[in-house]
């Protein structure tokens, strides 16, 4: 089977998606980025191909995206994660309608994209220099509370009583704030809820700059955190659409772009 590949080399993980001619996802994988991400990307790619029993020659086109996109020399095309994200989101939510707003939380960034009627990326915002309100922030919280990131959602819904309020958005200061909250006897659940709302508020502020409109698509690893989703929904007072595998949307978009670029080149050739 001939496939198109999209690879999203993010700051925390490498996502790969393979699609077929009719744009269906054939296979996908998520692996940690680690230190040498060129090697890790190639390894991840190799193992996915082996797992799915696909020959290298069957890959018609490979598009890379994410922070490391330019360093993957093997890619036929590089594409910025904003575009890839928009394209992926539009396609993933096709069945429910036209996506107007995309919110993405990555390992160290926060993005908002608004799409026009045709699904073209219209306007977008990104957090600037620091990692406040990103996946890093959640990781720090989990580490300080001696739990894991996937548990945060669960803790969120177990809250009895009032949530703590976290004022710092800077990861470093928030960490010390959490520690002192713990020392003051606040519950883990309360702190987690506080953290979720603090992130949600930041997202809301950022996203409002481009205007929020339904349908809102929420993706990236942290979108798996149900607690965070609830917090964002409450802050925006709108419902969010979360794809089945939220972390691979961008890689999926890259694969879709790979396919269309491939066809274009074919036409020109």
């Amino acid at each position: 089977m001939k496939v198109y590949a999209g690879i999203d080399i993010g700051s925390t993980s490498i996502k790969i998606v393979l699609i077929d001619e009719s744009e269906n996802i054939v296979a996908h994988s998520t692996n940690p980025t680690g230190a040498s991400f060129h090697k890790n990307s190639m390894d991840a790619f190799q193992s996915l191909l082996e797992r799915e029993n696909i020959q290298k020659a069957d890959i018609l086109y490979l598009a890379s995206t994410g922070y490391g996109r330019k360093l993957l020399k093997e890619a036929d095309e590089t594409i910025s994660e904003i575009t890839a994200n928009a394209v992926g989101a539009k396609k993933s939510a096709e069945k429910i309608g036209t996506v107007k707003t995309v919110i993405n939380i990555g390992g160290q960034d926060l993005k908002g994209i608004s799409l026009d009627e045709e699904g073209n990326c219209g306007n977008f915002v990104m957090n600037d220099k620091c990692a406040a309100g990103t996946g890093r922030f959640l990781e720090m919280t989990a580490r300080t509370l001696e739990t894991s990131v996937d548990k945060l959602g669960e803790l969120h819904f177990n809250l009895k009583g009032v949530p703590a309020s976290i004022n710092s958005t800077c990861t470093v200061f928030a960490e010390s704030e959490i520690i002192s909250l713990l020392a003051n006897g606040h519950s883990h659940e309360g702190i987690v809820v506080g953290v979720h709302y603090s992130i949600a508020k930041r997202i809301a502020r950022l996203i409002k700059r481009i205007g929020v409109e339904d349908i809102i698509f929420f993706d990236g690893g942290p979108a798996m955190n149900k607690g965070l989703v609830e917090a964002v929904e409450n802050e925006l007072m709108r419902e969010l659409y979360i794809p089945d595998v939220p972390q691979i949307t961008t890689a999926f978009g890259a694969a879709l772009i790979a396919r269309s670029v491939y066809h274009e080149e074919e036409v020109h050739a």
Partner: peptide, 14 residues
């Protein structure tokens, strides 16, 4: 520069 290049590229792509 890293952040900006992503934004600029996305703008150009769009």
């Amino acid at each position: 520069t890293g952040q900006l290049s992503t934004r600029v590229e996305a703008f150009i792509e769009s």
